[in-house]
Nucleic acid binder design. Structure first.
Lengths: 210, 210
DNA sequence: AGTTTGAGTGAACGTATGTTCACCCAAAGT
DNA sequence: ACTTTGGGTGAACATACGTTCACTCAAACT
């Protein structure tokens, strides 16, 4: 909508939403080569172009800003899971189909993945815990997905969870690598594909061992 | 050595060494629930009990302090590798023998492992790079170790490196978990043992697939 | 005995931090 | 038309920051 002189008219909540978005983006930009625990409220405010006090209208601390970023980052990540599962009807193609999807997601949501990688290990305690919890949920989702796959029923529930955890933690590692060395994407993907196959060969031969 | 009144006599370099040690320990203590990028030179100095300026007699920045901590942390880690290999003459027992050794090391050098886990993801850029490099070296060592194991020759050099990388990154993940949840050590070790076996079953069945 | 060296001191600097408060003023509600 | 609401302002605070500089004084060297 525009006013009589052509200027953009915003409702109150639209403007608030826009500033909030700007704060989140500024925080993502500032943590890109640092960490939440190392940036200041004032840096964020300066980056956004607001006065420090205005920050409090949106978040009551840098930590709660961090929790909001965890939320939206894992929204991205759930999108990844959805896309992966959608593209891999066959277990055989699961790996080959999934890795490019992972790479696309990491490229498209670079800031979010980098944020999670950093804060997972070094963020404020409550942020770390939130991330740990979200990853746990995703691992559970993956376990039920794998159970539906042909041959997946050979696993006990316990072992299903362990397999899912193995995959998730390795994928987390891969995402971290893609972020650290974006230029080496092709090599990283090729190596990871081989490694996941090693892992899968283990999984598929698991039943005979029990 | 003691003086006439019983007080401890220290040479100049002994005293310097002691203060340096105190600085390193103070930094480890302060980063335990934070990160190098979030602590200040003054905090470290206060923790040690020296005036901020005295810090510069030992390190010229918090970053170079970090590099020194990377060095001594990986000295601990190499000790782990040595102990693991020493205790596992049989490939079969490799996992069962190694995990308790890992747990012992993580417990004994908790601060070092926690430091690496944090700074690997969120430390100052040069510290991150130093850690990445050290992990790469250790992966190479592991690859040559695995090659000497019966059956290890079935792998191409390339695949050996990938397998070693797979193991190392998973062990890094495990160490991080042991640090985050020391109370759950028994459970974590049991789960990891099963997971490493899954991984190993894959590795041992790998040749037949090529 | 006399001199040099070097870890630790203490004051001072300009700057940045989180948080408080009273204030402004346009959109939203009446 | 008038009042309320609420995002954003700007000054002020006490505290913390990295770094400088001239200094002390005991160990080490000559």
């Amino acid at each position: 909508m525009t006013g009589a002189l052509g200027e953009v008219i915003e409702t109150r909540s639209e403007r608030k939403q826009r500033t909030r978005r700007a704060i989140l983006d500024a925080a993502l930009a500032l943590t890109d080569d640092s960490s939440l625990v190392a940036i200041s409220l004032r840096q964020v405010a300066k980056e956004v172009g607001i006065v420090p006090t205005a920050f409090y209208r949106h978040f009551d601390s840098v930590e709660s800003l961090g929790l909001a970023l965890v939320d939206e980052s894992f929204e991205s990540l759930r999108g990844l899971l959805r896309d992966v599962w959608l593209r891999s009807p066959q277990f055989q193609d699961y790996i080959d189909g999934s890795l490019p999807v992972l790479a696309d997601h990491v490229r498209a949501h670079r800031a979010h993945y980098a944020f999670i990688a950093r804060e997972r290990a070094a963020g404020p305690p409550r942020v770390r815990e939130a991330i740990r919890h979200e990853i746990e949920l995703i691992t559970r989702e993956l376990a039920t997905d794998v159970a539906r796959v042909p041959g997946g029923r050979a696993f006990s529930t316990e072992h299903l969870n362990l397999l899912a955890d193995l995959i998730v933690s390795f994928v987390v590692t891969t995402a971290e690598r893609l972020i650290e060395e974006p230029a080496a994407e092709a090599r990283i993907l090729a190596e990871t594909r081989t490694q996941l196959r090693m892992l899968m060969v283990g999984a598929l031969n698991w039943r005979s061992r029990r």
